[in-house]
Design a protein around this nucleic acid. Structure first.
Length: 266
DNA sequence: AGGAGCCTGCGC
DNA sequence: GCGCAGGCTCCT
């Protein structure tokens, strides 16, 4: 689930629940997460007050008033569950933040692939991200620059967070469908008009996702145009949606209205 | 560029 | 049981 719109929602949830509150305890409850944050490091954060919650791409940065930062990434299945200290812990509680007013925020993640990592004052996690899609910096010129000389398929390039921050497998496929561009096209072969379409498509797909209220599950596959819809008719042209594998990930597209077209890179 | 690995749950 | 999953890193 967690691509940019979902992480944006999660960050705002966390912001609303915690800014201005003092942390009374941070518990790391799974060995995989403890590899990045030992129990004593978690303990050391107690007493600090949350000053701000920021999002960059799919990353969340919790800023504390003493200059420290908590870097959180949900990977495949993470989410926040906000509640009260007195409530029973959710099933997959991998980390727990408790505040002095009794607010409790749980990092819930069935797969335990999420990461949570502390940074000392003055230290920043090395994120190496391109612009967020909604940044002014994310325009055709940036895309043209970022994709030049990349012979890899455009789908793979869109998953590279240095090209654009926050897209994942689902919205990359959806954006390419929206832009009528084959995911198999070499990234550098897109012309200016296609880049313009692609940028607009990414923004449209994200805007649509913002509007939807959903938790991630296979049951909401219905809200996608191509993702998860192998062999179904394309909602635009009626062609048959194909599933292929690129860089080990499922890709869905309509071969009829997202033609492959051989065009060479400049 | 492609594949394994990290984890666990789920659907077949 | 096996293969699959929306992310990302590390290895060959």
């Amino acid at each position: 689930m967690p691509e940019l719109p979902e992480v944006e929602y999660a960050a705002s949830q966390l912001r609303r629940a915690t800014v201005g509150k003092r942390l009374s305890a941070l518990l790391i409850r799974h060995p995989a997460l403890r590899r990045r944050m030992a129990a004593r490091a978690a303990k050391a954060l107690a007493g600090a007050t949350v000053a701000a919650v920021e999002r960059r791409g799919k990353h969340q940065l919790v800023r504390f008033d003493d200059g420290r930062t908590l870097h959180v990434h949900f990977r495949m299945a993470g989410r926040w569950i906000v509640g009260r200290e007195s409530e029973p812990l959710p099933r997959y509680a991998r980390a727990v933040l408790v505040f002095t007013d009794g607010t409790r925020v749980v990092l819930d993640d069935s797969r335990a692939l999420s990461t949570i990592e502390p940074y000392a004052p003055g230290m920043e996690p090395p994120l190496d991200l391109g612009p967020d899609p909604r940044d002014a910096a994310f325009d055709e010129t940036w895309l043209a620059h970022a994709l030049a000389r990349r012979r890899a398929p455009i789908k793979n390039a869109l998953l590279d967070q240095r090209v654009v921050a926050g897209l994942g497998n689902v919205y990359a496929a959806e954006s390419l469908w929206e832009a009528r561009i084959s995911p198999h096209r070499p990234a550098c072969s897109l012309d200016r008009a296609e880049l313009r379409r692609l940028r607009a498509a990414i923004l449209a797909v994200l805007a649509r996702a913002d509007g939807a209220q959903y938790a991630a599950s296979d049951s909401d596959v219905g809200r996608f145009r191509v993702y998860g819809r192998e062999d179904a008719p394309c909602p635009r042209c009626g062609g048959r949606i194909a599933r292929t594998v690129q860089a080990g990930r499922s890709t869905y597209h309509c071969p009829r209205c997202q033609p492959r077209r051989d065009r060479r890179c400049a």
